[in-house]
Each structure stands twice: as C-alpha cells, then as structure tokens.
Design a protein around this nucleic acid. Structure first.
Lengths: 220, 220
DNA sequence: GCGCTAAGTTAACGGTGTTCACCCAGGGAG
DNA sequence: CTCCCTGGGTGAACACCGTTAACTTAGCGC
C-alpha cells in the first residue's frame, strides 16, 4: 500500500529530455517505459505516473497528452502483449494434429503464459473493468479474437468426431476458458497454497473436462 | 483511479464521537463501517482510511490503534465473511445424499456466494497476497478449513463408490476449486462477456469435470 | 488527590493522480 | 522576412491518499 516505484536513477536509461519535431512517438516511449516498470515491480499501482515520466525523461503532465488516464495507460501496456498471448496459445495448438491434444496444448500454453506474465495477466483478466461505457460490446474487446479461436478449436474437435456432436462449442469453450483461468489466476494470487505440479493439474482438468464429452469411451 | 469514498454526510449514520471507558469495541465499529463502505463502492481501494474514520466518527490515526495497516483492515473485513462463505458452501452440500450431487451443489453455492459478495471474494481470492512473511503456511490461512471440506467431500464420493478408487482427492479437489473459481472470478472481472446462464455453465463444468472420474459409465 | 495508562487527537510528511495556465519552437501564410 | 498559430510540451498547484510522531485527555487503582 505504500511501496511505490520512484527514487533517483531508478532506471539506468538516459533522460534525453524533450523529444522534438516529429509526431507523437513519445507515446511508444511511454508504453515501453511503463511496461519495463510494470514487469520490474509486479504491481500495477506500484508504478506511478511520475515514475514513468521520469523514466522517459519527461514531466508527468505530458503523459496525459497521450493517455486519458493511468488506467488507460496500464491497459494499453497490457493489451500490447495480448497479441503475443494469443500467438503463444495458438502456436501451441497449431502444431498438434489430434484436435483433443491441440486443446490440451492450448490449455498448457495459456497457463504458462499467464504465470510468466502475471501482472499483464492480472490487468487483462483480473482487474476491475473500468466500466467506462455501460455498453461495451465484447466483440470490440481485445480478447474476443482469441476466444473465438478457442471456439473454433472446439468446433474442429467436434467436426473431426473426437467430441460428441451434441456438445455446444460456445459453452464448452467458455468452460475450458474458465478452468484454465481458474488455475492461472489462483496460482498467481495464492502462491502460498501447496499447489500440485502445474502440468499435472492442467492435464487433470483438461482430461476430466473433455473426457465427459468424447464420442467413444476413450476415458483417456 | 480517482473515485474515492468521501464527501460529507457520506453515511446517514450518526457520529457518536469518542467512545469512552470500555475496551476496544471500536475495532468492531471500524470493521462494520469498513464492510459497509466496501460493499457500497465495490472496490477495496476506493474506500479510504479517512472515509472509514469519518463514517465511524473518529480520526484516521485511531484506526491504527486497532489495525496495523489498511491491508490488514480490509483483510480482516473479508475474513469475517469467510466463515459465512464456508457455511454457505457446506450447507449446500450437507443436505444432499448423493455425494456427486453434493459436490455439484457445493459448486453452485460457491459461485453464487462469490457473485453476491464480489468485493470480499476479490480480496480473498484475487488480490495480491501481501506476502508479509516469506513462509506463510497454508494451514494457518483462513481458507484451509474450507478447502479441507472439499477434499473430504471428494473422499466421500470415492468411498461411496461414486468416483473411481484411483482418483487423487487432493488433485481433484484442487481442480474443482480452480474451475469454480475460474467461473466466479471471470464473471466478476469481465461482466461484459456474453456469459451463458451461470447454472448451466457450472453444471456443464461439474458434469464434464466429474464424469471423467465416475466409476461406471453413467456419463450423466 | 496522584500518577499511570489506554484511547484519541492534531499536525504533519511524503507521495499520488490529475488539471490548469503558461511557454516555446517551428512551420505556413502574407 | 515577419507574424501568428498550433503541436508538444513545462511548472505549479489541487485534492486526495496512507501513515507517523507528538501531544492530550479520560478514567482507574492506590
């Protein structure tokens, strides 16, 4: 509650003071610095606007030239890594031919990415949504594409005959998402719990989660 | 980031100014006021020490006579409702004779409680653990009893023959917890997602989660 | 009545997000 | 060449925040 990121020479980087002339690529510099600080202190409100400004070599109000809010800045930082997140998950599933194994590979990649980038994950999936607009439609959210990829992957498993024809792809994808998110977010928030091996846990969840939906009694 | 809980006459309640004589039941008053504010503004850091103090009718430093920290206060508030939480989950499972149905009833009660008390849930299961001590053992945590209850419930399902004898109760309980937590926390954090019906989702997850572990091929 | 201590207060410190008023370099128009 | 105007900032301040130190007061035991 009291630890914040400041202090002189916080960042070894230079303070080139006053970028001139060309357009607003200061925005990118701000995002870079904010991301560095965010991963350094793994806490979104331990990194301050003033700290970011100092790291960039600029005064705090300049940041508001490019971001309406601290929340918008942090969100922009985290959404930046969303594409990377989607790539990691999709890449893990793409190389696997068995559609059930592909789903499982996706799940592992999901959890791994979340645990390796806990603060970004926290901002994306565990923070209080700003609820800026009362009606933000999900299709405009950064994760809607990634989610659709999961629905598609479930659909492929159905089409291939691996999953029963009567399973609802949307419901199943939502359930899988909830399960892997549950593992990820709990392990982030409660590291003191005596967690079993992550991979074993994810395998257990995916296995039992999907085995109830398989066409034959493979009960793998 | 800017909305905090203050303003005059925030609470219609009186400000009885200066409790005297008897012991520290101011502590209870603080907890009451903090809980009220916490549920009013559903955000732990939108309720301020100063706001709580004003609601109680006392000055901010008095709070530190009873709580070392704001975090300790918030945690105390939320842990207060942990017994209630455990009771709700256990009560839901107690009346059901079929051990599999009992597990499912627990899951529904878990999610329902979380969605009805989102900010307490957030503090308990979604906040960055203070990590005060490097070695906090889980048995001392407030939730360890509640978790043990789930392990026991899984154990009963095994003993009754409803679940296969070779399933690991701890791993299965952890998996179930992760799944219901995943639903709960995602629905809290991303209300703009087009969620399916909660009960249907929980049923789907529990059903497929457990159907892979049943003894016979009930595939319910 | 005297002191001691529990219970609270006043005042302040350092930090936060954010805003307002100002400045100033550089480029286009006349 | 000069004027002005606008994008890209700066300095100072506001209204908070959590927290601490020093001081005061109320009531009890002796």
């Amino acid at each position: 509650m009291t630890a914040t990121a400041r202090g002189p020479a916080n960042v070894p980087g230079p303070r080139p003071r006053a970028r001139r002339g060309e357009g607003s690529k200061l925005r990118e510099l701000i995002l870079d610095a904010a991301e560095r600080l965010l991963v350094r202190y793994g806490d979104a409100d331990a990194v301050s606007i003033r700290g970011i400004a100092e790291a960039v070599g600029v005064t705090p109000p300049s940041i508001y030239l490019h971001f309406t809010d601290k929340e918008a800045l942090i969100r922009a930082v985290s959404e930046r890594s969303f594409a990377e997140f989607d790539d990691a998950v999709e890449g893990a599933g793409a190389g696997v031919s068995d559609p059930l194994e592909a789903l499982r590979a996706r799940a592992h990649a999901y959890v791994r990415f979340g645990l390796e980038n806990p603060e970004q994950y926290r901002v994306l999936f565990m923070s209080k949504t700003g609820t800026h607009g009362p009606e933000v439609d999900f299709a405009a959210m950064p994760g809607s594409d990634a989610f659709q990829h999961v629905v598609d992957a479930v659909g492929r498993a159905i089409d291939s005959g691996a999953l029963r024809g009567d399973v609802d792809p949307f419901l199943t994808a939502t359930g899988l998402w909830a399960c892997v998110h549950g593992v990820t977010s709990l392990m982030i928030s409660l590291p003191e719990f005596p967690w079993p091996d992550v991979d074993a846990l994810v395998d257990h969840i995916c296995g039992s989660q999907l085995s109830g939906l398989v066409a034959k009694e493979k009960t793998r």
